[in-house]
Simulated assay, not measured.
Amino acid sequence: MDRLKHRPGFYEKYIKRPQDFCCALLAIIVLSPVMAIVAAMVRLKLGSPVIFKQERPGLNEEIFTLYKFRTMTDKKDKDGNLLPDEERLTRFGKILRSTSLDELPELFNILNGDMAVVGPRPLLVRYLPLYNEHQARRHEVRPGFTGYAQVNGRNSISWEEKFDMDVEYVEHVTFLGDWKIILQTVKTVLKREGISSESSVTMEEFKGTTSKVGEI
């Protein structure tokens, strides 16, 4: 039996998007000096381009361009292939990631309407065919700058746990819930929790879920 599609409530229909726009605009104004400094440091230490751009799936799996500050070099092996993340991620890049400063350009994605302040994080396009029916529900809302999974383990939890939390958020989008996640995000960033998984400097590649747990 097909699962019922997410139905936005009053908050999601009429408040969440205007609230996101105002929060992003205010954050850009307040943090513009910080973003300018980070941009200058990225240019100095990593070169150009300063902004990393990558296509990601958003609401209803529609593709948009995500903006982040660059954190890795373009070092390649003798065959012209990019080296593994751990070899391209510099000490400076690790600092940007641990403080989440690399994600500040995503505020412009929020202004554009591609993202929300809170929602499932936008992942790679190549993961789309790997989701099971349950996991694919994460695309029934706009992806977020932060999310339920990001304040409950971030990259230190498994993909399956992360996706379960994403879907749990989809089923319970509320004003108080969003602001609780925003406040928890500040705490998580300050404590630099869950930045890496147990075996990777970022997060391992998602290769699909063999178990059908969570599907109906």
Rank of each mutant, 00 (worst) to 15 (best):
Ala39His: 10
Leu111Val: 11
Pro129Ser: 13
Ser32Ala: 15
Lys162Gly: 01
Arg70His: 09
Gly93Arg: 05
Leu183Ile: 12
Ala36Trp: 07
Phe64Cys: 11
Glu133Phe: 06
Leu46Phe: 14
Pro129Lys: 11
Pro49Phe: 13
Ser32Gly: 13
Glu168Gln: 03
Leu82Cys: 00
Arg138Gly: 01
Ser200Trp: 12
Ser100Gly: 04
Val42Met: 02
Thr202Lys: 12
Phe10Lys: 08
Arg192Pro: 12
Gln54Arg: 12
Asp178Ser: 08
Gln184Glu: 15
Phe52Val: 08
Gln19Arg: 13
Leu104Ala: 04
Gln54Thr: 11
Phe69Glu: 12
Glu161Val: 01
Cys23Leu: 14
Leu107Asn: 00
Ala27His: 00
Val170Glu: 06
Phe69Thr: 09
Lys68Thr: 00
Thr185Pro: 05
Val117Arg: 05
Met1Val: 11
Leu46Val: 14
Tyr67Ala: 02
Phe21His: 03
Tyr11Pro: 08
Val167Asn: 07
Gln19Asn: 06
Gly147Ser: 01
Thr209Trp: 01
Ser48Met: 10
Ser211Leu: 05
Thr209Arg: 03
Gln150Leu: 06
Phe163Thr: 14
Gly119Ser: 09
Lys180Pro: 01
Glu140Pro: 02
Leu66Thr: 04
Leu111Asn: 13
Leu101His: 08
Asn155Glu: 06
Cys22Tyr: 12
Glu86Cys: 06
Phe21Gly: 05
Ile182Asn: 01
Ile63Asp: 03
Pro120Thr: 02
Gly214Tyr: 04
Glu198Asn: 11
Leu124Thr: 07
Asp164Gln: 04
Ile37Lys: 02
Leu111Gly: 06
Arg126Val: 10
Ile157Cys: 00
Glu215Gly: 09
Gln54Cys: 12
Val34Trp: 06
Leu104Arg: 07
Leu190Asn: 10
Asn132His: 12
Leu190Glu: 00
Val173Pro: 06
Cys23Asp: 01
Leu89Gln: 13
Thr210Gln: 15
Arg121Glu: 07
Lys212Cys: 14
Leu176Lys: 13
Ser197Ile: 01
Pro129Val: 11
Glu103Pro: 10
Cys23His: 03
Pro8Val: 01
Ile15Cys: 14
Ala39Trp: 13
Thr99Met: 09
Thr99Gly: 12
Arg138His: 00
Asp178Tyr: 08
Arg126Gly: 07
Val213Cys: 11
Thr71Tyr: 09
Glu86Ile: 02
Leu104Ile: 14
Arg17Lys: 11
Arg138Glu: 05
Leu111Met: 07
Ile51Ser: 03
Pro18Ser: 13
Leu26His: 00
Ala24Leu: 07
Pro57Gly: 08
Glu171Arg: 02
Val213Thr: 08
Val151Leu: 05
Ser100Phe: 03
Arg7Tyr: 08
Gln19Glu: 15
Met1Arg: 09
Leu107Tyr: 01
Asp178Leu: 10
Gln135Arg: 00
Lys68Val: 10
Lys162Phe: 03
Gly119Lys: 08
Ile182Ala: 08
Glu86Ser: 05
Asn81Ile: 15
Arg138Ile: 00
Glu160Arg: 15
Thr146Gly: 02
Leu82Lys: 09
Met35Glu: 05
Tyr11Ile: 10
Thr202Pro: 04
Thr99Ala: 13
Leu59Asp: 08
Leu176Met: 08
Leu96Lys: 04
Ser100Trp: 02
Asp164His: 00
Gln19Ala: 15
Val38Gln: 05
Ile216Ser: 07
Ile216Gly: 00
Arg126Thr: 05
Ser48Ile: 14
Arg91Phe: 12
Ser100Glu: 08
